[in-house]
Amino acid sequence: MTRVHDMGGRFGDGPVVPEAEDVKFHADWHPRALAIVLASGSLGTWNIDVSRHARECLAPKDYTAFSYYEKWMGGLAALLVQTGVLTRDELAGLGDAQISDLATKKLTADQVAGVLARGGPTERDSDVAPQFAIGDAVMTRAIAENTMVAGGHTRLPSYAAKARGRILRYHGTHVLPDSNAHGLGEAPEPLYAVIFPAAELWQHPEHPRDEIVLDLWQSYLEAV
């Protein structure tokens, strides 16, 4: 495990506590935090992979202690400073805030429905041809880390590193988060659903026929 967010398979977290469907938020400030993060994202200064990585880069003690929306705010504060949208002094509430050059991109109330409805599809044309067919046996990378950037973003969880599975579905060619999170381009490549027997990932699986499926990019995989 390189970062604390990569927690799949971890022991000791205690029970999962079910919750009624009509509970949407757990504090008055939660909806505001959600909305501020989404509205700031629509300025277009960062993409979803950059924002996920910003949350993952929170200090482990903060990541662990923070509620979901606190992580979002922690990530947002980092992004705003990192991309120069705000200075550290402005974030700290010091000095006179001037209207930003980015203000022309501000999300207005009448644009909200359209922006949320459009979302951010990640399927792209790609020159990278699919190397695997459905049913092919594959092995994941031995080390679940970004190969281009030290400490960088990746979507291969540690628990699924160096594991043998088979291709279950082909999703088309999608933006590669390992590249897109670091300003290295979208680098779209084939994306697959890969299925693993639970016994391939865990020493003591609950049931011999249980399986885990992960969506994995072609560069995470090699033929076996």
Binding site: L34, A35, L80, L102, A113
Partner: peptide, 22 residues
């Protein structure tokens, strides 16, 4: 949250009415 909303609103980067709509 309040501090973030205040500074981003002062900088002209978010519109409180858009937040309400979200």
């Amino acid at each position: 949250v309040k501090a973030l909303e205040t500074i981003l609103t002062e900088k002209g980067l978010i519109d409180p009415a858009a937040l309400d709509a979200i």
